[in-house]
Amino acid sequence: MQAGAKLGFILLISPLVLWLGLLIVIPHVDMFLVSIRERIGVGQYQTSFANYMAFFGEPLYIITFIRTAMMSILATVITLLIGFPVAFYIAKIAKGRLQSALFLLCLVPFWVSELVRTFGWMILLRETGLISKFLQWSGLADQPVEMLYNDVAIMIGLVYTSMLFMVVPLITTMESLDDSVIEAGYDLGGNGASVLREIIIPHAMPGIVSGSIVVFMLSLGNYLTPTMLGGKDSLWFTELIYSQFIVRFNWELGAAFGFMLLFLSSVIVWGTLKLTGQTLKSTMG
């Protein structure tokens, strides 16, 4: 009987262990080994932390990382500011078919690939694109307006790409908030602002935190959007990693960059949780 239970446990746990082991742990260990390898000649390597030193020794790399992190944080904040009212409307105000329809509408952009979505933005934002044409037609602009190839375009792309990942956890947490709790907030003298501040936001906090973590990580790790919409000044950390791996054949430095990204982004998430007094535990359960 006990042996049977043990076997059952092993069978249940083995997909998770295999998944974690084969797809996460082993590649990371391998990556780490690559990252502490220094090329000293054709096909010759030695173990050292030279690649990590290279990261800290070159201001460009650090600047790029800081820029990427700042833009990602900003994208997260904007996504939250836009996503919160949207999620509130879907979860609390829209009813029945409208609710499902709106939810579906949030999902629709994800039926096409990220590449196509990004191309969509390029068509809209470019100098000869729809928005520019419309502005000229309506007389708001007297010459073509270039809205592509700058940081604002990156931001639009990032926010658009991340919206779903913010809205879904927010809807889930807000749906669990009993309408009568909100009504009680008003009934006891609260106004819109205080009900939002004291009741809705504290209740939605787990959703806000988990949505923000996901959006931050997605933005930080995004490659297509910053490179395609960002133009000539678009420095994005994943671009550096890609170019080290693919263009420069420098897997060692690329792997070190990968680990710095993993480490620094974890530090940022941890720090933000500390700063806002949240814990991962309260967020997850």
Binding site: D178, V181, A184, G190, H203
Partner: peptide, 19 residues
Amino acid sequence: PNKRPVNMVFQHLALFPMM
């Protein structure tokens, strides 16, 4: 509603779980 001299005890009480 927030200005009426009336208060309400809700069906499921609606205590604020966050406080």
